[in-house]
Simulated scan of single mutants.
Amino acid sequence: MTKICYLDFDGVLHSDQVYLSRDFGIHMQAEGRGLFEWISILDELLAPHRDVSIVLSTTWVAEFGLDVTRQVLPEALQERVIGATYNPENLGYFDAWPRGKQVASDVKIRKPDRWFALDDDPSGWADSSRGHVIQTNGATGISTSEVQEEIRRLLNSW
């Protein structure tokens, strides 16, 4: 049985106030926030569910490539990554599509038995996807107990 977590980074694993510039590289503009500050939470939530794979649905893949993007994750999460919604073949339309449409397209291709998405972007999700999306607040990501409990409930229902 194929189980997938579609994973966004910004607004999920850290604040959505992340920017890339030529002068400063990747940097946070949210005061007191750090890159990937909530990543250990995801690692802990997924730990009991070894059969859940990760598909990266972050724009980081389009910017840095799959291999480089995967390497920012802890080893236990890196091992779960089986791909990304973005690939060079879909560059022509990928940026024009809202996140929900990007993930829905990947679901049609991979055909997982079970899937859910962690994302702070509410756009483009079809009504049929709503039960699969755990919407985070861009400022708090998965750091809140409510979001963590929602993830636990979903994973335990599988």
Rank of each mutant, 00 (worst) to 15 (best):
T2Q: 12
K3H: 14
Y6V: 06
Y6N: 07
Y6M: 06
D8N: 07
F9M: 11
L13F: 07
L13E: 02
H14Q: 06
S15P: 07
D16H: 11
V18K: 00
Y19N: 07
Y19H: 15
R22M: 12
D23F: 07
F24L: 15
I26G: 00
H27A: 06
M28N: 07
Q29S: 12
G32T: 02
G34E: 09
F36C: 01
W38H: 09
W38G: 00
S40G: 05
D43V: 03
H49F: 15
H49G: 04
H49P: 03
R50Q: 15
V52G: 01
V52Q: 03
V52D: 01
I54V: 08
I54G: 02
T59K: 11
T59R: 10
W60G: 03
V61I: 11
V61Q: 05
F64N: 06
L66M: 10
D67E: 14
V68R: 05
T69H: 04
Q71T: 08
V72Y: 10
P74N: 07
E75M: 01
L77Y: 05
Q78W: 06
E79C: 05
V81F: 06
V81C: 05
I82V: 15
G83M: 01
A84M: 00
N87A: 11
E89K: 07
E89N: 12
N90F: 02
L91G: 08
G92Q: 06
D95R: 04
R99V: 13
R99H: 10
K101W: 14
Q102I: 05
Q102S: 09
V103N: 09
S105R: 13
D106W: 02
D106Y: 04
K108A: 15
I109E: 15
I109M: 14
P112V: 12
P112K: 07
P112N: 14
R114M: 11
W115S: 00
F116I: 07
A117I: 12
A117M: 08
L118G: 05
D119S: 10
D119A: 12
D121A: 15
P122F: 06
G124Y: 08
G124S: 08
W125I: 14
D127W: 01
S128Q: 13
S128K: 11
G131L: 14
Q135A: 15
N137F: 13
N137D: 15
G138W: 14
A139N: 15
T140M: 15
I142T: 02
T144K: 09
S145H: 09
Q148H: 07
Q148T: 08
Q148V: 08
E149R: 05
E150G: 00
I151Y: 00
R152V: 03
R153G: 00
R153H: 06
L154V: 09
L155F: 12
N156V: 03
W158T: 12
